[in-house]
């Protein structure tokens, strides 16, 4: 104790490392991380392994589990609806990597220059994100309703481009649902980007202004490079989340009409809970996980190559 409160030299003498840590020391360290390991084991690792194994079975969700090798994957690779769903997930990803990010960046940049009332806009933009998806979906189903929604109302004024059943038309159902999901999501991006922009050194903007940079040039050459880690993080997360999309599609169209808005998540659900084919559903789940792993791998590779993300 004395040595602990003495000068650095005395402290160092106490902290001299022994050649091998004692067994109690090692056990003590394990004891600290054991709760986390157990928790991870129960909540993540065991269910993941179980989910993976189910993909090689014909389990209906009720009775005995029989291993059937790779039959589910053979069927999956011949399943047109699955590939249609996968394509829709890709379209969904492309949409979310462009429109919401662009609008989020624009919103955050404009908001960052506001001093008064910024909190009001922050709350207003973020509010849809914390409202339950069921509520948001119902709200937009009414707003875009072909009888009582905005479409027929605008049509009375001669503006007819929204006067059709958006969620009931094959060509628009997927993008209609994506729009509603993006509406609830973009405020979240605004908040993230705004926080990142707040950390940018103001002197960089002053120098840019002295050099005669326009607002767009300041955004392009100062803001964007400065918030790149946040931007790349959101790109990664959107890519992963886009493979998992389920709730808005399930609530608003259930994948219809005629599979035009079917995504992997709803297709998985259909097999697991409507068709009692949990094994096949698990094989779809494996493909969804593979998507996420590819996205994470890309992120890791870029970091290893020295990207500041």
């Amino acid at each position: 104790m004395n040595s602990f409160i003495a000068n650095d030299g005395a402290f160092a003498s106490v902290r001299q490392p022994s050649s091998r840590p004692s067994i109690w020391n090692v056990l003590g360290r394990w004891a600290f991380i054991m709760p986390l390991i157990v928790l991870n084991l129960i909540v993540i690792i065991i269910p993941s392994i179980f989910g993976l194994l189910l993909a090689f079975t014909d389990w209906s969700g009720y009775g005995p589990i029989n291993f059937i090798g790779t039959a589910n994957f053979t069927k999956l690779f011949q399943d047109k609806i699955f590939f249609q769903s996968l394509t829709h997930n890709l379209v969904w990803t492309a949409f979310f990597l462009t429109i919401p990010i662009a609008v989020g960046l624009l919103g955050a940049y404009l908001l960052s220059s506001i001093r008064r009332g910024q909190m009001f806009f922050r709350i207003a933009y973020f509010l849809p994100y914390v409202i339950a998806s069921v509520v948001n979906a119902q709200l937009w189903r009414q707003l875009l309703h072909p009888r009582v929604g905005i479409g027929p109302l605008l049509a009375q004024q001669g503006i007819t481009f929204l006067d059709f059943p958006i969620f009931g038309t094959r060509e628009t159902s997927l993008m209609g649902v994506a729009f509603v999901d993006a509406w609830h999501f973009w405020g979240f991006l605004v908040i993230l980007y705004l926080s990142a922009m707040a950390a940018v050194d103001v002197e960089l903007y002053e120098v840019a202004r002295l050099d005669g940079a326009t607002r767009f040039q300041q955004f392009r050459y100062v803001t964007l490079p400065s918030i790149r880690p946040t931007l790349v993080f959101t790109i990664l997360m959107i890519t992963i989340w886009s493979s998992l999309v389920f709730d808005y599609v399930y609530i608003m169209t259930n994948g219809g009409p005629a599979n035009s808005s079917e995504v992997m998540g709803t297709y998985l659900y259909q097999h697991a809970f409507d068709r009692f084919d949990v094994g096949y559903a698990a094989s779809i789940g494996v493909m969804m996980s593979l998507w996420a792993m590819i996205a994470v791998a890309g992120f890791v590779i870029l970091r290893r190559r020295g990207w500041d993300i």
Binding site: H145, P146, F164, P165, F167, G168, P257
Partner: peptide, 12 residues
């Protein structure tokens, strides 16, 4: 039409 059928639920 089909499109309206796909957007009508119980209430409608």
């Amino acid at each position: 039409n089909l499109e309206t059928y796909f957007t009508y639920g119980w209430n409608e």
